[in-house]
């Protein structure tokens, strides 16, 4: 029986790698059954179960969305590790921008250190003066 090489990977680890008789993946337009010699295909995935049928049995892997690439003898499934939604990505992008603005606004940190040091030196001098005067009085 012809087999097909299947790789299921996520950004942080390899979830499955091996030969299989066929694979089922939850494509965004409906479940996809992939047998060897399938035509080249590229599709997005929705959250669901990837089933890999091998001679030893059925391997079941949960994916939270992602991409599937099919070549006649290789199937590669990229599973998302992050929860993605347009609005969520947008708000994260805004946060990143805000941090950049803050960093740029604080660009005179170097001066801050100098002024703080000057203020500290002044305060120290004052304290010394006070303690001296107290010493005299007593």
């Amino acid at each position: 029986m012809p087999t097909i090489q299947v790789d299921v990977v996520s950004a942080t680890e390899s979830l499955y790698s091996g030969e299989a008789n066929c694979v089922f993946a939850p494509a965004s337009t409906g479940e996809l059954g992939i047998y060897p010699k399938h035509v080249a295909l590229l599709s997005t995935l929705k959250p669901g179960e990837v089933r890999v049928e091998t001679e030893k049995g059925v391997e079941s892997i949960y994916v939270s969305g992602g991409i599937v690439e099919v070549q006649p003898d290789v199937v590669t499934i990229f599973s998302d590790t992050a929860i993605r939604a347009h609005d969520l990505d947008e708000s994260k992008a805004l946060e990143a921008k805000q941090r950049a603005e803050e960093a740029m606004a604080n660009s005179d940190n170097g001066h801050d250190v100098v002024t703080t040091q000057a203020a500290l030196a002044e305060a120290m001098a004052q304290l010394q003066m006070i303690s001296k005067m107290r010493g005299k009085k007593i």
Binding site: A11, T12, T81, A82, I83, R84, D89, E90, S91, K92, A93, L94, E95, A96, K97, R99, A100, E102, A103, M104
Partner: peptide
């Protein structure tokens, strides 16, 4: 240089989702 986005305090185990916003900008 103009800084467009910033990502700090990732720690030793960065998560993939931490990156999304920064890359998206």
């Amino acid at each position: 240089l103009a800084i467009k986005s910033v990502l700090i305090d990732l720690g030793d185990t960065p998560h993939f989702d931490d990156l999304l916003g920064t890359v998206k900008v």
